[in-house]
């Protein structure tokens, strides 16, 4: 059964996959801080957020988020459904999506994120291992 991306169940399944990924653990030993992933949509009802509390190679919490999580998140990455689909299916690497402007860093900076490119990649590898459905993406 596939889970809808950015749903609470999908976020929790991602946390399990992240914590089961030794490559993520190794790559993310210096990562400290929470990240909010945000699907931006013209219709506010289609917007989605996922909040991930990541600490030195471990995902301590993952859940669907709301706009109120923006204050607590150290970084926010935002993009439309198509951009997230490309990233979460491994078509486009996170760094390429950011450099191409498909994903935008709306909180935090590229300079802060760059040393963590490999952990971002492994994070996506973990998330991509969760069978997911992408509503609204052809």
């Amino acid at each position: 059964m596939s889970l809808e991306v950015f749903s609470d169940a999908w976020a929790r399944a991602c946390a399990v996959a992240i914590n089961d990924n030794p490559s993520y653990r190794a790559a993310a030993v210096t990562w400290e801080g929470s990240i909010l992933l945000h699907i931006v949509a013209s219709d506010p009802g289609s917007e989605r957020r996922v909040y991930l509390d990541l600490w030195r190679g471990e995902c301590r919490e993952a859940r669907s988020g709301t706009a109120t999580d923006e204050d607590a998140a150290r970084y926010i990455l935002a993009g439309d459904h198509a951009a997230w689909h490309q990233v979460l299916t491994g078509v486009t690497a996170p760094i390429m999506a950011i450099m191409m402007g498909k994903l935008r860093i709306t909180k935090g900076s590229l300079a802060e994120l760059l040393p963590h490119v490999e952990s971002a990649k492994q994070l996506v590898v973990s998330a991509a291992s969760v069978r997911a459905s992408f509503p609204g993406v052809a």
Partner: peptide
């Protein structure tokens, strides 16, 4: 092309940092 860019962007930006 994409994979090469992905591999080299971190050290390239690293030069600037």
């Amino acid at each position: 092309t994409q994979q090469r860019m992905e591999a080299l962007l971190p050290p390239a930006i690293g030069v600037i940092q």
